[in-house]
Design a binder for these strands. Structure first.
Ligand SMILES: Cc1cc2nc3c(=O)[nH]c(=O)nc-3n(C[C@H](O)[C@H](O)[C@H](O)COP(=O)(O)OP(=O)(O)OC[C@H]3O[C@@H](n4cnc5c(N)ncnc54)[C@H](O)[C@@H]3O)c2cc1C
Length: 560
DNA sequence: CTCCACGTTGATTGG
DNA sequence: ACCAATCAACGTGGA
């Protein structure tokens, strides 16, 4: 069972409409009493409850209502993280280091975040209990072994998490364990937003904006965290592993410069907001995607993804900056607007069936994309022959992060711009390699970029040559991520195949040998793509369920 | 029903 | 360096 509202005892903060994975299932909306007949007796001599704080995302102590609740009146809090080999086991056959599903940069980011979480818990007299296994089996076992009274975890709207959490909630309830699952990963609960809109999922940003009010304030961190007992009843917990412990060795490639963890997240938040003029002038579309020493945006995305940073804290601090300044930019282009884009896609993702697929997705244009593994592999591996595209894809592989507009450029290139390959294939590559990869945001943006939903001006195509060039005419970004081109004169850097052979020789980079020729001719490919999009769109128009009146009209016309 | 303004982030050309 | 006009032109949603 889940509370629908929750007052944070000992604080003046009131967190509205907390949770509820449970709202999707039976008994929606019916307020339920909390009194549960516990099969698990409370601790010795009514000492207080034993609670299990299950960390998944939300890897932080600040603004963590689930953690706060787990501490209230507890004799012992068991802070748990379960490392699932399904996501973490090395896959030597994968195209780049990592598991089948997760690149090594995100695995490293996770481990660093766990290490930091453990350190912060220790500062509060507790520690992180790390286990290996499938959470769906591990968590219920722990509930039994530790005679847990209350299970606390952050509400998560991803389909994978919804299924997992529903299973675990069912078992917990069977064991008489109370479950508390508050909203703290997003500013708003998508369920509330959709309800506010009369049950319709808002599908434009402007419509979404109208539904948002003031988000709840963050809750304070717990002052002290009752430690887990020494005796863990034979449960095997491990220290936070290192990458090598998980089997990742001989990693010599340049890796992500962004370390994980709440401490780093808060530091980066401070750093991002200290220049108030920068914050107030922020206009997303004007950012420079080729800036990589000092990126043009905050790079807070991986911290938001793992919940090392609370979006509510970010939002609160942002509004504090705005309030101290006369003028500031506004959504959609402002920094606040970026946080609201995140909310928008979380809401759309929650309310749309099959959001992560073309088939069966009611908002997704049905387009006959190609299933071309050769093109896909070239794109994934930074071998398209277009340096701007390839450099961005190498940045993705090496750093796990790219500027938003670089994501635009490569996503457009793979799909509607040049290659006409399934957006879902590109989504999978991003999902594996991004350190900020996020189900709702990633899918939402791929739908956008492929002009499958939200955005439909498919004739607006990024040039794989001039788009990068206009930001970085010297090609410093390209030269950094594609060192093979480092001696190519800047005049040819975006189109090295046009360099005379003598120039190629002098630059130690023969096109077709050291660096590939363009895999498609953009001037031809973009026209073909446009044409295919036009045909697909018109077929979607005629296949869209015709309204009764338009059917009548057609009939009448036929009779006439 | 029709009409029309609007949409975070195009490219090119000309001033 | 920056801006505006032009091109070609989509679907959505509110009036
Ligand atoms: C094809 C494609 C795939 C993407 N996949 C992801 C993803 O898996 N995870 C992810 O976090 N972002 C994704 N984005 C959105 C965006 O590119 C990143 O959020 C942003 O570049 C992260 O950098 P930042 O933190 O410096 O952003 P900032 O501009 O500093 O924005 C602050 C925060 O706002 C949120 N935000 C910013 N832009 C968007 C957006 N367009 N949509 C939703 N939320 C946004 C992010 O949480 C971000 O951290 C994707 C974009 C594209 C085009």
């Amino acid at each position: 069972m889940v509370a629908e509202s929750f007052r944070c005892v000992g604080h003046s903060f009131f967190v509205k409409s907390l949770p509820s994975a449970a709202l999707r299932t039976a008994n929606c909306g019916r307020r339920r009493s909390f009194s549960v007949s516990c099969s698990n007796e409370k601790g010795n001599n009514n000492m207080g409850k034993r609670s299990l704080m299950w960390f998944r995302k939300g890897l932080r102590l600040h603004d963590n209502p689930a953690l706060l609740r787990s501490c209230e009146g507890a004799s012992h809090v068991y802070p748990v993280f379960v490392l699932d080999p399904w996501f973490l086991a090395p896959d030597p056959t994968a195209p780049s280091p990592g598991s089948k599903l997760v690149g090594v940069n995100r695995i490293r980011f996770l481990l660093q975040s766990l290490e930091d979480l453990d350190e912060n818990l220790r500062k509060h007299g507790s520690r992180l209990l790390v286990l290996h296994g499938n959470p769906t089996t591990v968590i219920p076992e722990l509930l039994m072994k530790w005679q847990i009274n209350e299970l606390c975890f952050e509400f998560d709207t991803e389909p994978y998490a919804q299924d997992r959490d529903a299973d675990i909630k069912k078992l917990a309830t069977k064991y008489g364990v109370e479950v508390f699952s508050p909203v703290s990963h997003t500013l708003f609960n998508p369920i509330d937003t959709i309800r506010k809109n009369g049950g319709q999922t808002p599908l434009t940003y402007q419509a979404f904006l109208k539904l948002t009010g003031k988000p709840p304030l963050p809750v304070t961190a717990p002052l002290q965290i009752p430690s887990p007992p020494e005796d863990l009843n034979d449960v095997h917990v491990v220290p936070v592993p290192k990458l090598e412990d998980l089997g990742y060795v001989n990693l010599d490639e340049e890796f992500s410069p962004h370390p994980g963890g709440e401490t780093e997240a808060l530091r980066r938040l401070d750093k991002s907001l200290v220049n108030q003029k920068w914050v107030c002038d922020f206009e997303k579309p004007k950012g420079n995607p080729t800036a990589f020493i000092e990126p043009a945006t905050t790079v807070l995305s991986p911290y938001l993804k793992f919940g090392c940073l609370s979006c509510r804290l970010f939002h609160q601090r942002l509004l504090a900056v705005y309030s101290q300044n006369k003028k500031h930019s506004s959504p959609p282009v402002s920094l606040e607007g970026q946080l609201l884009w995140r909310e928008f896609f979380y809401t759309a993702g929650y309310g749309t069936p099959n959001f992560d697929r073309m088939l069966g997705n009611p908002i997704c244009k049905q387009i006959p994309w190609k299933d071309d593994d050769r093109l896909l592999a070239a794109w994934r591996d930074g071998q398209t022959g277009y340096p701007w595209i390839d450099a961005a894809m190498v940045q993705l592989r090496k750093w796990g992060w790219m500027h938003h507009l670089a994501r635009h450029a490569v996503a457009c290139f793979l799909t509607r711009g040049d290659m006409f390959v399934y957006w879902e294939k590109g989504r999978d590559v991003f999902d594996r390699l991004l350190i900020d990869s996020d189900w709702a945001i990633n899918n939402g943006n791929w739908l956008w970029l492929s002009a499958s939903a939200f955005f439909h001006q498919y004739h607006r195509i990024y040039s794989p040559v001039t788009f990068g060039k206009k930001y970085d005419p010297d090609g410093l970004y390209v030269k950094h991520f594609l060192p093979v081109l480092k001696d190519m004169p800047k005049y040819y850097i975006y189109e090295p195949w046009t360099a005379p052979l003598a120039v190629q020789k002098k630059a130690n980079c023969i096109i077709g040998v050291d660096y590939p020729r363009p895999i498609v001719d953009h001037s031809i490919a973009n026209k073909e793509c446009r044409e295919k999009m036009g045909i697909a769109y018109s077929q979607n128009r005629s296949q869209a369920a015709p309204s009764v009146s338009s059917t009548m009209r057609k009939r009448r016309r036929g009779v006439d």
